[in-house]
Amino acid sequence: MSAAGFDPIIHAPIRLQACAILASADKVEFGLLRDAIEVSDSVLSKHLKQLEEAGFISLHKAASAGRVRTWVSLTPVGHKAFSAHVTELERLVRSSAAPAAVAGE
């Protein structure tokens, strides 16, 4: 059983949710991402830092209407890692749904 696509960095629930949201958009504003995942700023920041250190996301600050906003996006490496992780999770689900061989049969 190969787990080549399984990524423990992405697998943590908050990071997995963030990657899923980011995979469907070019970029997402930090506050929107925080609200969608329903976590505090500090919790999201901690998880985004881990994704950024892995090279999976990029953060970009931009001024808008007198406020500085942080935008988050998946990098090409992040897209590839997230896709591989989802593929591995799907494989695990399929294998768990297959009838198991019973010893002695």
Rank of each mutant, 00 (worst) to 15 (best):
97 A>Q: 09
75 T>Q: 11
50 Q>F: 03
90 E>G: 08
35 D>F: 02
22 L>H: 02
73 S>K: 14
8 P>L: 05
14 I>S: 00
7 D>C: 04
56 F>K: 03
46 K>W: 14
81 A>Q: 03
11 H>I: 00
20 A>L: 01
81 A>C: 04
90 E>I: 08
19 C>F: 13
64 S>A: 10
65 A>G: 13
2 S>E: 14
92 L>N: 15
69 R>H: 11
51 L>C: 00
37 I>K: 04
27 K>Y: 12
29 E>M: 13
86 V>L: 10
18 A>N: 02
33 L>Q: 04
19 C>M: 14
3 A>E: 08
39 V>T: 01
33 L>V: 04
60 H>W: 04
75 T>G: 11
98 A>R: 15
100 A>R: 15
16 L>G: 07
47 H>C: 09
61 K>M: 13
4 A>M: 15
59 L>S: 10
71 W>Q: 04
67 R>K: 14
25 A>C: 12
28 V>H: 10
71 W>N: 06
64 S>L: 11
85 H>L: 08
17 Q>E: 09
76 P>S: 02
46 K>V: 09
22 L>Y: 02
55 G>F: 10
51 L>P: 03
27 K>C: 09
38 E>R: 15
84 A>K: 12
8 P>G: 05
39 V>I: 02
18 A>D: 00
62 A>N: 05
64 S>V: 14
25 A>F: 15
25 A>R: 15
26 D>G: 13
60 H>P: 05
80 K>A: 15
72 V>Y: 01
57 I>E: 04
6 F>Q: 07
86 V>M: 12
39 V>F: 02
11 H>K: 01
35 D>M: 04
17 Q>G: 08
96 S>F: 04
85 H>F: 15
30 F>V: 01
30 F>N: 02
69 R>I: 10
39 V>A: 01
35 D>W: 00
61 K>W: 08
52 E>C: 02
33 L>W: 06
58 S>A: 07
3 A>P: 13
36 A>G: 07
78 G>S: 07
54 A>L: 07
87 T>R: 13
51 L>H: 01
92 L>Y: 09
75 T>A: 13
12 A>P: 06
28 V>K: 13
49 K>G: 11
77 V>K: 07
101 A>Q: 12
86 V>A: 13
14 I>P: 02
44 L>K: 06
21 I>L: 12
71 W>V: 06
52 E>T: 03
58 S>R: 09
28 V>C: 05
38 E>P: 04
103 A>D: 06
3 A>W: 13
3 A>M: 09
97 A>F: 15
91 R>I: 09
18 A>S: 01
72 V>G: 01
17 Q>F: 06
3 A>S: 13
83 S>M: 07
82 F>D: 07
18 A>T: 00
9 I>A: 05
79 H>Y: 11
59 L>I: 11
88 E>Q: 15
4 A>F: 13
104 G>I: 07
44 L>T: 05
11 H>E: 02
18 A>G: 01
85 H>N: 08
36 A>M: 11
51 L>I: 00
22 L>R: 00
31 G>T: 08
33 L>Y: 08
25 A>Q: 14
51 L>S: 02
46 K>N: 14
22 L>S: 00
70 T>W: 12
24 S>I: 08
71 W>C: 06
5 G>F: 13
102 V>N: 03
74 L>P: 14
32 L>D: 10
78 G>R: 11
22 L>F: 00
25 A>S: 14
46 K>G: 13
74 L>E: 06
7 D>K: 03
75 T>R: 10
